[in-house]
Protein backbone atom coordinates (compact mmCIF):
# COMPACT_ATOMS: atom_id res chain seq x y z
CA UNK A 1 0.00 0.00 0.00
CA UNK A 2 1.28 3.44 -0.89
CA UNK A 3 1.46 6.40 1.46
CA UNK A 4 -1.38 8.09 -0.40
CA UNK A 5 -3.69 5.12 0.03
CA UNK A 6 -2.91 5.15 3.76
CA UNK A 7 -3.83 8.82 3.87
CA UNK A 8 -7.06 8.05 2.04
CA UNK A 9 -7.86 5.34 4.58
CA UNK A 10 -7.14 7.73 7.47
CA UNK A 11 -9.45 10.33 5.91
CA UNK A 12 -12.27 7.78 5.44
CA UNK A 13 -12.01 6.65 9.06
CA UNK A 14 -11.69 10.24 10.34
CA UNK A 15 -14.72 11.40 8.39
CA UNK A 16 -16.73 8.40 9.65
CA UNK A 17 -15.77 9.15 13.29
CA UNK A 18 -16.58 12.84 12.80
CA UNK A 19 -19.98 12.08 11.23
CA UNK A 20 -20.85 9.52 13.91
CA UNK A 21 -20.03 11.96 16.71
CA UNK A 22 -22.30 14.64 15.23
CA UNK A 23 -25.15 12.22 14.66
CA UNK A 24 -25.47 11.31 18.32
CA UNK A 25 -28.06 12.90 20.60
CA UNK A 26 -25.20 13.72 22.97
CA UNK A 27 -23.91 16.41 20.58
CA UNK A 28 -27.24 18.24 20.49
CA UNK A 29 -27.75 18.04 24.25
CA UNK A 30 -24.16 19.15 24.78
CA UNK A 31 -24.63 22.19 22.51
CA UNK A 32 -27.85 23.22 24.30
CA UNK A 33 -26.20 22.78 27.72
CA UNK A 34 -23.16 24.81 26.58
CA UNK A 35 -25.34 27.65 25.34
CA UNK A 36 -27.30 27.79 28.61
CA UNK A 37 -24.05 27.84 30.61
CA UNK A 38 -22.62 30.63 28.47
CA UNK A 39 -25.75 32.68 28.81
CA UNK A 40 -25.73 32.24 32.59
CA UNK A 41 -22.17 33.60 32.67
CA UNK A 42 -23.67 36.99 31.69
CA UNK A 43 -25.00 37.25 35.26
CA UNK A 44 -21.48 36.94 36.68
CA UNK A 45 -20.05 39.49 34.28
CA UNK A 46 -22.80 42.02 35.08
CA UNK A 47 -21.56 42.13 38.67
CA UNK A 48 -18.20 43.43 37.46
CA UNK A 49 -19.95 46.59 36.14
CA UNK A 50 -17.36 48.54 34.16
CA UNK A 51 -15.25 45.41 33.54
CA UNK A 52 -18.10 43.45 31.96
CA UNK A 53 -16.44 43.00 28.58
CA UNK A 54 -13.30 41.44 29.99
CA UNK A 55 -15.13 39.28 32.53
CA UNK A 56 -17.67 37.96 30.02
CA UNK A 57 -14.96 37.17 27.46
CA UNK A 58 -12.78 35.45 30.06
CA UNK A 59 -15.61 33.33 31.45
CA UNK A 60 -16.78 32.41 27.93
CA UNK A 61 -13.28 31.33 26.91
CA UNK A 62 -12.80 29.25 30.06
CA UNK A 63 -16.21 27.61 29.66
CA UNK A 64 -15.40 26.95 26.02
CA UNK A 65 -12.17 25.19 26.95
CA UNK A 66 -13.64 23.09 29.77
CA UNK A 67 -16.66 22.05 27.69
CA UNK A 68 -14.47 21.25 24.72
CA UNK A 69 -12.09 19.15 26.83
CA UNK A 70 -15.00 17.26 28.41
CA UNK A 71 -16.48 16.63 24.96
CA UNK A 72 -13.16 15.43 23.53
CA UNK A 73 -12.42 13.18 26.52
CA UNK A 74 -15.89 11.69 26.35
CA UNK A 75 -15.37 10.96 22.65
CA UNK A 76 -11.94 9.43 23.21
CA UNK A 77 -12.78 7.32 26.23
CA UNK A 78 -15.74 5.79 24.43
CA UNK A 79 -14.17 5.64 20.95
CA UNK A 80 -12.91 2.06 21.09
CA UNK A 81 -15.13 0.70 23.84
CA UNK A 82 -18.31 1.61 21.92
CA UNK A 83 -16.93 0.04 18.76
CA UNK A 84 -16.01 -3.12 20.67
CA UNK A 85 -19.44 -3.22 22.33
CA UNK A 86 -21.21 -2.77 18.99
CA UNK A 87 -18.70 -5.14 17.36
CA UNK A 88 -18.17 -2.57 14.58
CA UNK A 89 -14.42 -2.55 15.24
CA UNK A 90 -14.17 -6.01 13.61
CA UNK A 91 -15.49 -4.54 10.38
CA UNK A 92 -12.40 -2.34 10.23
CA UNK A 93 -9.83 -4.71 11.72
CA UNK A 94 -10.87 -7.65 9.53
CA UNK A 95 -9.84 -5.64 6.46
CA UNK A 96 -6.23 -5.02 5.46
CA UNK A 97 -6.13 -1.85 7.51
CA UNK A 98 -3.11 -1.56 9.78
CA UNK A 99 -4.09 -0.80 13.37
CA UNK A 100 -1.84 2.28 13.34
CA UNK A 101 -3.87 3.67 10.42
CA UNK A 102 -7.13 2.84 12.19
CA UNK A 103 -5.89 4.72 15.26
CA UNK A 104 -4.73 7.71 13.19
CA UNK A 105 -8.18 7.85 11.56
CA UNK A 106 -9.92 7.76 14.93
CA UNK A 107 -7.64 10.44 16.39
CA UNK A 108 -8.07 12.71 13.38
CA UNK A 109 -11.84 12.19 13.55
CA UNK A 110 -12.01 13.16 17.21
CA UNK A 111 -9.79 16.19 16.53
CA UNK A 112 -12.09 17.21 13.65
CA UNK A 113 -15.17 17.00 15.87
CA UNK A 114 -13.29 18.94 18.56
CA UNK A 115 -12.47 21.67 16.04
CA UNK A 116 -16.13 21.74 15.04
CA UNK A 117 -17.33 22.01 18.63
CA UNK A 118 -14.84 24.85 19.24
CA UNK A 119 -16.27 26.64 16.22
CA UNK A 120 -19.83 26.15 17.50
CA UNK A 121 -18.90 27.30 21.04
CA UNK A 122 -16.98 30.32 19.64
CA UNK A 123 -20.04 31.39 17.68
CA UNK A 124 -22.19 31.00 20.81
CA UNK A 125 -19.71 33.06 22.85
CA UNK A 126 -19.57 35.79 20.17
CA UNK A 127 -23.38 35.84 20.08
CA UNK A 128 -23.60 36.20 23.89
CA UNK A 129 -20.93 38.95 23.96
CA UNK A 130 -22.54 40.85 21.06
CA UNK A 131 -26.01 40.49 22.59
CA UNK A 132 -24.72 42.52 25.57
CA UNK A 133 -23.59 45.28 23.19
CA UNK A 134 -19.92 44.54 23.88
CA UNK A 135 -17.09 44.02 21.42
CA UNK A 136 -15.16 40.80 20.91
CA UNK A 137 -11.46 41.34 21.76
CA UNK A 138 -8.71 40.76 19.17
CA UNK A 139 -7.24 37.78 21.00
CA UNK A 140 -10.53 35.84 21.07
CA UNK A 141 -9.83 33.70 18.01
CA UNK A 142 -6.17 33.16 18.94
CA UNK A 143 -7.48 31.90 22.29
CA UNK A 144 -9.84 29.52 20.46
CA UNK A 145 -6.87 28.21 18.44
CA UNK A 146 -4.94 27.78 21.71
CA UNK A 147 -7.85 25.77 23.11
CA UNK A 148 -7.79 23.57 20.02
CA UNK A 149 -4.05 22.89 20.37
CA UNK A 150 -4.47 22.01 24.06
CA UNK A 151 -7.38 19.72 23.23
CA UNK A 152 -5.43 18.07 20.42
CA UNK A 153 -2.53 17.31 22.79
CA UNK A 154 -4.88 16.03 25.45
CA UNK A 155 -6.84 13.95 22.90
CA UNK A 156 -3.73 12.14 21.73
CA UNK A 157 -2.67 11.34 25.31
CA UNK A 158 -6.24 10.37 26.21
CA UNK A 159 -6.18 7.80 23.39
CA UNK A 160 -3.06 6.32 24.93
CA UNK A 161 -4.62 6.25 28.40
CA UNK A 162 -7.85 4.72 27.09
CA UNK A 163 -5.85 1.93 25.45
CA UNK A 164 -3.92 1.28 28.64
CA UNK A 165 -6.80 1.50 31.10
CA UNK A 166 -9.53 -1.04 31.71
CA UNK A 167 -12.59 1.20 31.87
CA UNK A 168 -13.93 4.36 30.20
CA UNK A 169 -14.25 6.19 33.51
CA UNK A 170 -10.64 5.48 34.50
CA UNK A 171 -9.43 6.82 31.15
CA UNK A 172 -11.63 9.90 31.52
CA UNK A 173 -10.43 10.68 35.05
CA UNK A 174 -6.77 10.05 34.21
CA UNK A 175 -6.99 12.35 31.18
CA UNK A 176 -8.63 15.01 33.35
CA UNK A 177 -5.73 14.75 35.79
CA UNK A 178 -3.34 15.00 32.87
CA UNK A 179 -5.00 18.32 31.91
CA UNK A 180 -4.67 19.68 35.46
CA UNK A 181 -1.04 18.58 35.85
CA UNK A 182 -0.23 20.01 32.41
CA UNK A 183 -1.10 23.43 33.82
CA UNK A 184 0.42 23.00 37.25
CA UNK A 185 3.89 21.80 36.22
CA UNK A 186 5.02 25.16 34.85
CA UNK A 187 3.57 26.95 37.91
CA UNK A 188 5.54 24.83 40.38
CA UNK A 189 8.88 25.66 38.76
CA UNK A 190 9.80 28.17 41.55
CA UNK A 191 9.07 25.43 44.12
CA UNK A 192 11.36 23.02 42.24
CA UNK A 193 14.20 25.50 42.50
CA UNK A 194 13.68 25.81 46.26
CA UNK A 195 13.24 22.07 46.89
CA UNK A 196 15.97 19.54 47.65
CA UNK A 197 16.38 15.76 47.96
CA UNK A 198 13.37 13.52 47.26
CA UNK A 199 11.05 16.52 47.03
CA UNK A 200 13.19 18.00 44.26
CA UNK A 201 13.24 14.68 42.41
CA UNK A 202 9.42 14.26 42.54
CA UNK A 203 8.70 17.84 41.49
CA UNK A 204 11.26 17.70 38.69
CA UNK A 205 9.80 14.41 37.46
CA UNK A 206 6.34 16.02 37.32
CA UNK A 207 7.81 18.75 35.13
CA UNK A 208 9.30 16.16 32.78
CA UNK A 209 6.30 13.79 32.61
CA UNK A 210 3.63 16.29 31.62
CA UNK A 211 3.51 18.67 28.68
CA UNK A 212 3.28 22.34 29.58
CA UNK A 213 -0.25 23.26 28.53
CA UNK A 214 0.17 26.85 29.76
CA UNK A 215 2.16 27.43 26.60
CA UNK A 216 -1.16 27.57 24.72
CA UNK A 217 -3.27 29.40 27.34
CA UNK A 218 -3.78 32.45 25.16
CA UNK A 219 -6.96 33.30 27.08
CA UNK A 220 -4.77 33.74 30.15
CA UNK A 221 -1.78 35.50 28.60
CA UNK A 222 -3.69 37.73 26.19
CA UNK A 223 -1.93 40.82 27.53
CA UNK A 224 1.44 39.40 26.46
CA UNK A 225 0.42 39.44 22.78
CA UNK A 226 0.13 36.67 20.18
CA UNK A 227 1.95 33.78 21.78
CA UNK A 228 2.34 31.05 19.16
CA UNK A 229 5.87 30.62 17.92
CA UNK A 230 7.43 28.01 15.67
CA UNK A 231 8.93 26.48 18.83
CA UNK A 232 5.65 26.16 20.73
CA UNK A 233 3.85 24.73 17.71
CA UNK A 234 6.70 22.25 17.13
CA UNK A 235 6.48 21.19 20.79
CA UNK A 236 2.76 20.46 20.34
CA UNK A 237 3.50 18.45 17.18
CA UNK A 238 6.22 16.45 18.96
CA UNK A 239 3.96 15.67 21.94
CA UNK A 240 1.08 14.59 19.70
CA UNK A 241 3.45 12.41 17.63
CA UNK A 242 4.96 10.83 20.77
CA UNK A 243 1.51 10.00 22.17
CA UNK A 244 0.40 8.63 18.80
CA UNK A 245 3.44 6.35 18.44
CA UNK A 246 2.96 4.99 21.97
CA UNK A 247 -0.77 4.49 21.34
CA UNK A 248 -0.05 2.66 18.06
CA UNK A 249 2.41 0.44 19.91
CA UNK A 250 -0.12 -0.30 22.69
CA UNK A 251 -2.90 -0.86 20.13
CA UNK A 252 -0.80 -3.34 18.14
CA UNK A 253 -0.44 -5.47 21.29
CA UNK A 254 -4.09 -5.35 22.27
CA UNK A 255 -6.05 -8.60 21.89
CA UNK A 256 -9.68 -8.45 20.74
Amino acid sequence: MSFLSYLKLIWILAYRTFRESLKTRFFLLFAIFAFILMYISVLGSMLAISHEERVLTDISLLLMEILCIVYALFQVSSAFSTEIRNKTIYLVLSRPVPRAVCLAGKETGVMLSTAFIILVLSLMAVFVIKSRGLSVPDYFFAAAVGTFIKTAILTSFAFLLSLLSTSDITAFVMSGLFYVLGHVTSEIEPLVQKASGVKFFILKLCGILFPNLNLYSVRDTAAAGFPFTAGSLSAAFLWISAAYILSAWAFSRKEF
Binding site: L215, G231, S232, A235, A242, I245
Partner: peptide, 22 residues
Amino acid sequence: MPVIALTLFLAGNFLAEKEYHS
Protein backbone atom coordinates in the same frame (compact mmCIF):
# COMPACT_ATOMS: atom_id res chain seq x y z
CA MET B 1 8.75 2.57 19.33
CA PRO B 2 8.41 3.56 22.99
CA VAL B 3 12.01 4.82 22.89
CA ILE B 4 11.27 6.93 19.78
CA ALA B 5 8.11 8.24 21.47
CA LEU B 6 10.00 9.12 24.64
CA THR B 7 12.67 10.93 22.62
CA LEU B 8 10.04 12.97 20.78
CA PHE B 9 8.25 13.73 24.05
CA LEU B 10 11.45 14.96 25.71
CA ALA B 11 12.33 17.01 22.63
CA GLY B 12 8.88 18.63 22.94
CA ASN B 13 9.52 19.35 26.62
CA PHE B 14 12.90 20.86 25.80
CA LEU B 15 11.36 23.18 23.19
CA ALA B 16 8.52 24.11 25.54
CA GLU B 17 10.94 25.00 28.32
CA LYS B 18 12.78 27.31 25.93
CA GLU B 19 9.59 28.96 24.67
CA TYR B 20 7.67 29.39 27.92
CA HIS B 21 8.06 32.67 29.77
CA SER B 22 5.37 33.38 32.33
